[in-house]
Each structure stands twice: as structure tokens, then as C-alpha cells.
Write a protein that binds this DNA or RNA. Sequence first.
DNA 1: ATGAAAGCGCTAACAC
DNA 2: GTGTTAGCGCTTTCAT
Lengths: 338, 338
Amino acid sequence: MVTRERPTLEAVARRAGVSRATVSRVVNGSTTVATAIREAVHQAVEELGYVPNQAARSLVTQRTESIALILPESASRVFSDDMFFPAVIRGVSTELEAADKQLVLMMAGSAASHDRVERYAMAGHVDGVMFASMHGADPLPGALARLGIPVVCSGRPLTPSEAAVPYVDVDHFGGVTTAVEHLLTSGRRRVATIAGPQDMVAGIDRLNGYRATVDRAGMGTLIAVGDFTRESGVRAMGELLSTDPTLDAVFVASDMMAHGALQTLRRAGRRVPEDVAVIGFDDVEISRLSDPPLTTVRQPIVEMGGTMARLMLGLVRGRSDATSAVVLPTELVVRASA
Amino acid sequence: MVTRERPTLEAVARRAGVSRATVSRVVNGSTTVATAIREAVHQAVEELGYVPNQAARSLVTQRTESIALILPESASRVFSDDMFFPAVIRGVSTELEAADKQLVLMMAGSAASHDRVERYAMAGHVDGVMFASMHGADPLPGALARLGIPVVCSGRPLTPSEAAVPYVDVDHFGGVTTAVEHLLTSGRRRVATIAGPQDMVAGIDRLNGYRATVDRAGMGTLIAVGDFTRESGVRAMGELLSTDPTLDAVFVASDMMAHGALQTLRRAGRRVPEDVAVIGFDDVEISRLSDPPLTTVRQPIVEMGGTMARLMLGLVRGRSDATSAVVLPTELVVRASA
DNA sequence: ATGAAAGCGCTAACAC
DNA sequence: GTGTTAGCGCTTTCAT
């Protein structure tokens, strides 16, 4: 393995018979360079296989041309079956690629890795940090923002507002409202819900949407709480049935939990949608294939990632709309389960 | 957003009343510093919130403490349902985390992003590059290796050997052999295969294993080629059935394709395993849940990622066993389909 | 339009 | 043990 020395600006300059400054100008696309010289430089670059040293460049420009996306989960959770993070990543990476920025993906499931992320960002490794779907009130986004590092979150941060960071989220509340109203207008009288974890915005907002809509209709609430997993859906549905066997509809805060609920209903001998109508949330792929196919609320995850990336690019370029928020619309997808 | 200046070594040195060199020593954990001074420095670091500038550090050390993992696929493919890449990432990230190296994940599905990866690595952004499961004979690993950048591949590279890079792979050949022999010894007389894409090592090796084993048993081969997706499995199984309706067993080169094959067999009125035995490869999660549960070959993907990361760490530390190869064992998991 | 020169913040010899 | 000093490779005024 021949560790051939990498050529430097200096080497290119010598070869082209010009100064380092000129080479730098050419490499960075300055227009104020004579065409003949520019070509000579380009040729020298080619012949030597010159590639600028990013560390040296960053040292003076204070920029790295790369942006971090923090996934505050362990690797196993990030790549679980709900495809949420993959979709976010897709949206982000498409957008950053177009801007020629490098995406640095970081998993921060543990406290230790959480620290590492902080150090990494503070060491100037990246020009900005995006967070995907945080748990609880994570202080990190605010902390980084306070240090002057551009930060954007996907999912409204639960942090006390002192250091408000820009974010993009989907309209959980509106989606749930539509879903529950769909159940009510189709004649359901006893609409329960299986809520998500109450330390996440998605869990909180969806439960609030349910409460508000059921209240407005003058109906009583019936609530069980899960953690967005299929297993928790199985269990929560069991609880609901034993609390009130007369329920005739359930709004479930995630499709994975809804699948669990379907299983419990089947085992309890309830027909869907004849006896009990079910609506989920997320529109994950398998919801089309479940039995029966799931009526659900679709949220534009890929677009959310793209929007987050665009916000970030704006911040990095200094067009800081400081604290802005974007909320993307959700949509009820009606299938056989309700 | 107050872009508070980041404190430098110099600032810490002044505050602690020592030289920059001493601060550097303390920060880097040198033992040759008097305890009193070390504590004074630590305190100054604390008070100022000092974090070393990575660009400056890299410029002189020529190291970045981060390592890239290249996924030569688009984001959508990387996070598709077969969970292959997620498992690799899990193995890699666990290992790197233990070594306190930062993992930089890069998707390189398009030609353009392929270029960007090359520039990124050559710009000294990372200390080493790992490749996960390449298509065809990608010249990039060899090219980077020739430039003196440590490279490790998961999946034996298909590149002509001139620039042999170290790699880790699973024992496709052995796994397939065991699978096909299982079919033969259980009395199957006409064993077909659905092969994977022939521009990938996994596709090639698994087909070779099938050929060799069937040949050795003096049986004839029967081959259809897919691309590892479920849909291609559906189609390929159809082809096989129409080519030879008397087949009584299929070795399918991936579980996803095997699921497709099961569907086609069901529709064709063939019972599994009574009429046709089916064995897949990969042991993806849903294979346990399919109808019937799939007999398959398990490959240790997470471990492969971990091993790859360990090889890389060795190279980066200069313990270059230069060109080494590791092949991990596979294992037949017998369920109801064969 | 081009070159000279001054750092960016840090580490690593080398002196003391 | 600790301080002094010389760069790492690049961009960017400031002259010319």
C-alpha cells in the first residue's frame, strides 16, 4: 500500500508556474482569472490528481460543507419496521445532495452517544445539525443553537421555549380530527383510542386531537396508552375491550399499534369494520396488505425531511429566518377497516 | 442567535497561566503533566467551555477520527424491507462506538454521489472507508486503496485482483451446499433454483453453490434469475413451473424472492412442502411468519459488519495485515417449508 | 489580473 | 515537566 503523498496547492502552483493564490482562485471558481492561466492550472490539477485538503480549508473558512442528521435512537430502532427514519433520511439526503452538501448520519440512542454528538458538533465537524423526532425534552438542540450552530428539528420540540429552534412537523391534530370525525359521521357512538407514548410530540398531539374531537361531539373518551409498537397495540386493545365491551370504533395513533389491535379484535371475535371500525396513523406500507386493509392518516414524511433540509440550508447560508416553523398537511386514506 | 466565539487553546492557556503546549497535553491526556497544573487547565477548559477545533487538529495530525461506510445504493433501496443494510450498520456502529470513532454513513446510489464519495474520501474527511455489498466491479475501493486510504469491503469484491482490498464475507457457497443437500437427502429429485443478480457476489456464489451440489449428485440443473426482490421471485417461480412442472424443490437465493415464490406456488395449487419444498437464504424476520415458515440459510450480518469495522480499525491503527479476508460461517435453519 | 504574506487553531519536536 | 517554535494546507486581504 503506497501512501503516495497527496499533492498540495503549492505543488500545483509550481507546476503551473503561478502562485498559490491563483491556484486557489481557479479551484474555487473565481472569475477574475485569465483564461490561459486558468487552463494551465486545471491541467496541473489534473496531472497531479490534486484534491483540496478539507481540514486546511475548514480551518480558514470555518465551514465543512457537511451537515449532521441526528437520529435519537439506537441503530436497531432506527431501522425497525415502521420505515419512519428511512423516509426522513430519504427526503433529507435528496435535498442535501442537490446542494452538494455531505450528509452525516449519527445515531444517538444512548447517553454516551448523545455526548459524542454534542462534542462532534461543537468541534466544528459540521455546519449544522438536524434532529429527527426527539423523545422528551432533549436539551441538545437548544444547547447547540445557543452556541450559534444552526439547528432544525423534525417534530415540534418539547423543550421549554427559551431557545426556540426552527422545526417542521406534520399536522397531527388535523389528521386525527379528520379521522375521528370520519368515525362519528359514519355512525359510530363509542369511539376509543390507543394513544402513543406521552413523551413524544406525535403521541401527545394525536391524543389531544382525539380528545378535542370526541369532546366536541359530546361523546365520552376511552383511552389506552401504547408505545407505537405492535405488541403494545395488542395489549392496549385488550384493555379497551375489557374496560368497555360496547366500543364500536378505535382510533389508533400508529399503524403498527393498529395491526396489533386488529389481531386482538380478531381473537376476541369482533369483526372489522362491522363490529368495530379501526383507523390508524402513518400509512406504513403493510397497512395496505393487512386484513382488512387499514384506513389510516397519511403523513408526508419524505417531504418533511426535505423541508427540514431546506430550512437548514437556508440557515447555513445565513438567510436565517431565525425561528420558523412549517407544518405539513396530513390526509385520511380510507380503506376497508373503517 | 449569538454566535459566541469559540474559545481556543490560546485562551485556555492564558486563563490557566500556562503554555499552549501544556493545555494540548492535558486535553490529549498526556501523563507527563503535574497534577496541580492539570487541574488548573481542566478548570479553565470547563469555565470557557472549550472544545478542540477538529479542523486544526486534523490538519496537523492527518487524522479525523471518523470512518465512512459507503452504501452503494439509493436511500430507498438501503432502507427497503430486507434489513440487510440496517444489520450491517448495526454491527459497524457498535464496534466503532466502542473505539470512539465517528461513523459517517454515505449513500452512493447514483454516479454523481459515487463521485462525491470519492472526493470526500480523498479530501481527507475520513480516516478510512468501508463498503457494504457492491454491485459489479466497482473500481472505487481499489482506487482509494491505491491512494493509501484504508479500505475494507463487506462482500468479496468482484474487482480484478490488481488492487486487492481486505474484505469480510459470509460463506455463501457452504450455506447453499448444505441447503441443497438437505433437499436431496430428504428425497427430492428435481431441485430448481431462483438465482440472485449475477453482478453481485452473493448472487454469483449462491448460484455456483447450487450448480456444484446438484452436479455432484448427478442431477440436472434448472435455473431462473431474479434480482433479490419479492416481485422477481413471483415471476421466476412462474418461469420454473412452466419450464418443468415436475420440479419438487426450489432453492431460492434470498428470502424475499422465496416469499414471492411461495405466493406463485400457492396460486399454482402446489402445496409447500408436500408438493414442492422451498429453502430461502438470509433468514429475514418475516420468514418466521410466512405460511409455511421458511427453511432458510442464516448469515451473520451484524457480525459481518462488526468484523469489517474491526478490520478497519486495525488498518487505521497501522496494524496493516494488508490484504486479509475473513469468511463467516452460515447455518441452515430448518422450518416447515422443507 | 496576479503575487506576497498573514494567519486559521492545533500538535509535536526540541530545548530548557 | 514545561515552554518555544515551526509548521500542517489553505484562503484572503492587501499591494502591485
